[in-house]
Write a protein that binds this DNA or RNA. Sequence first.
DNA 1: CTACTGCTAGACAACGTTGTCTCTCGATGT
DNA 2: ACATCGAGAGACAACGTTGTCTAGCAGTAG
Lengths: 309, 309
Amino acid sequence: MNDVARQAGVSLKTVSRVVNGETTVDPALAARVREAVASLGYRPNLGASLLRRADQRTGTIGLLLPDLVSPFSAALHRAIDAEVTRRGAQVLSGNVGHDPARERDLAETFARQHADGLIITPVAARQSHLAPDIPAVFVDRRARGWPADTVLATNHAGAKQAVEHLQRHGHRRIAYIGTMPGARRHGYRRAMAAAGLVKVERNDPEQALLEAPTALFTESRTVTVAAIRALQAAGMQRRVALVGFDDFPLADLLDPGITVVAQDPVAMGRAAARALFERIAGGTAEPRVISIPTTLIARGSGEVAIRGS
Amino acid sequence: MNDVARQAGVSLKTVSRVVNGETTVDPALAARVREAVASLGYRPNLGASLLRRADQRTGTIGLLLPDLVSPFSAALHRAIDAEVTRRGAQVLSGNVGHDPARERDLAETFARQHADGLIITPVAARQSHLAPDIPAVFVDRRARGWPADTVLATNHAGAKQAVEHLQRHGHRRIAYIGTMPGARRHGYRRAMAAAGLVKVERNDPEQALLEAPTALFTESRTVTVAAIRALQAAGMQRRVALVGFDDFPLADLLDPGITVVAQDPVAMGRAAARALFERIAGGTAEPRVISIPTTLIARGSGEVAIRGS
DNA sequence: CTACTGCTAGACAACGTTGTCTCTCGATGT
DNA sequence: ACATCGAGAGACAACGTTGTCTAGCAGTAG
């Protein structure tokens, strides 16, 4: 900035004024300054600026996601990005990859980079490591040890709806496939108990098929795909019904099309971004949970007829 | 830092030493300092540190991708992330979304945040806007106006291989579907010309099918999926052959499985990260192009028998 | 017992920027 | 003609940190 001032023949402070778009500068001087800025390739030092400045905003939002490859995360990212960009800020994202240490490191990095706020799908056991002075919003999972707005799909209701859908199609031996505790599993249990049916819960489709179920309900996209493979390998894709939690691309092009409980990542992302901007603006309301409804999309695999045994 | 020094009863500089892990501090003092740091929730100011510091490294790599939703980008991101993390640095990524202005803004942001380097899939017409003092590596596309290492798939050879594969299966009316100029289209033309066949190039599968081709070669995943839909809609998925450029999840579960020319995003990401670290370390070799081979994966759609017409 | 060495810890300046204060100069009102 | 005012521009300090220099002190050799 010194060099710019020298080349433009003005004081340091005047350069600062021009760079910051203050109006109390003679247009002729301002032009000279801008010219010097361009010719020297001057770039303001964010750190120094932040150091001195009162308003600490950087226009940057940090996004921490556990899995970049998942279409759900990707859609969420895109929705958040759209909403944040619409408000003139930027999203920088980091890949946590289910590693608690990386969640901590990345959050720390964003904090040091003076992100205005964070949107996080928590993977660590507790989130108490987060910087207390940076607003955060959680999405897709609940956090622990750090009260903040949380955006969730209606996991329990969605799972219940999926199982009831299978029950309506006559299924009574419905297996749950998945490895996580949580609302989806709980929704399955609730629906099965309500109908007086025996619960069958397994970690993977191969194990589940040993129990001769007539229908499968899968906890997540990964498991759904594993189940499709297992059914195709056994040639049973038209004999055993399948409903998966979480939609995915090409689900409609498979044969049969895969019936899913679709989340709404666009609405979730938008809600998360909005909640975050409210916090950044100084909102101090009690932390709340925002629920985004799921939708059952019937495509065939969830409606295969039950075999007379 | 002042507060920490006061609480620990030491000087400012000693706190600095402890925070930076210098060894010339009495262990007892260091322990007092660390305790004070923890109890006050002190977080060093990156900006101020960078301001004073000689070594300007931040351990941060910026990644600019055009499309988060594409499995190729996601895989690339993951591979880069793995390689960068392995070297103790972090990746922060931004979604450019095919918008040249956002490419510029995000690159600018990363520059201001003192990223050590950038990995970019260029979308803008020219990359001359990039900060000259920050090493950059391009991946998946060539840049213009900014010489740097570039990692590319063997697009020309891959396309040629795909078309030759179809020719070997007896196809003579092979349509190219895609909208971009470039090496893939050029590879198609080369292979067709070499076999003395008539080129049919169209923007979308519906138009291409009007020409009654016996085989389709699609330029990218998006187009491949559109072609699958079109073929299924017309019930022709077993009569018209299809080879797509770029692999995608579930390609093997479709019926027929989709034959593709697979890129190797893992190798590409790793190569890009390695090239970048060489530049960061001060490598000044002539910019080079690193080619990563593609592989044809036969799954059925590219091998459907040609109908005796 | 003195001079020297080695090591720890503090004082001070400087990094690049901006908030505040002050100065200059021309315009306005009486 | 004189006092007053406002707008534009510069001087200066301060933000939080670290590189450099120096002071203090204990241990060691002569």
